[in-house]
Simulated assay, not measured.
Amino acid sequence: IGGGSICITRETKGIGRGQATALIDVCRARDEYYEETGVYVPVCSDGGIVYDYHMTLALAMGADFMMLGRYFARFDESPTERVNVNGQYMKEYWGEGSARARNWQRYDLGGAAKLSFVEGVDSYVPYAGTLHDGVNSTLYKVKSTMCNCGANSIPELQEKARLTLVSSVSIVEGGAHDVVVKDQSHQSVSYR
């Protein structure tokens, strides 16, 4: 069990592991099963997709497809209203295991027709405009990363991509840092 952005199963029950580790282990077991039986079982990376590059990472780790609830919840086309939270536009997003969703059948152990405790939260995600624009941008990023890996297909990406553990300092270093960044959308300046 990995962890999605609205999932608190690991907090409430103390089970599970990081999404990447869970995905890699399940894909390894899938591949072993395929070698033994000739039966290929597609794997879904369910949870943990926050940034566009997380999709490419999930595919590189062996996922055949992904759950993208948080991703799609941000767009105009999602069924929730756009709201202003502390000066920033947001969209509502909640987990299946939250009290709001009341998806008892998935989480209850049987017997009582109630949600015994929650395993998800009710939250907001930053508003991202239209689905058309967002998906096009995401696809360009995924394709560009595949190109960087010399891959023309997802199976080729899974074969050629090299995953490396990086430090939190390396992640900061991978973005803009030690400069004053001009924010073109608000004509303000912020220091990173």
Rank of each mutant, 00 (worst) to 15 (best):
H186P: 03
G14D: 08
V43N: 05
G174K: 06
S153Y: 07
P126F: 04
G16L: 01
M146I: 04
L59N: 06
V135Q: 12
I171S: 11
K182A: 09
L59R: 01
P155E: 10
D31K: 09
S167H: 09
H177L: 09
Q19Y: 00
Y127N: 11
A20T: 01
R106W: 03
R100I: 13
W94K: 04
R74A: 14
G14Y: 12
S78Q: 00
A29M: 14
G150P: 05
H186V: 05
I6V: 15
R30K: 12
G87P: 13
N148E: 09
S98N: 11
G110A: 06
L131P: 04
E32L: 10
D108H: 02
E36V: 07
G2R: 05
D76K: 01
N148W: 01
G150H: 03
T9N: 02
V50A: 10
R70N: 15
Q187G: 12
G48R: 01
Y40C: 07
D178E: 14
Y71A: 08
H132V: 05
Y107P: 08
L109E: 13
C149I: 00
S190K: 08
I6F: 07
R162H: 14
Y89F: 14
E119G: 09
G111D: 10
G62H: 02
P79N: 07
N103V: 01
G14I: 11
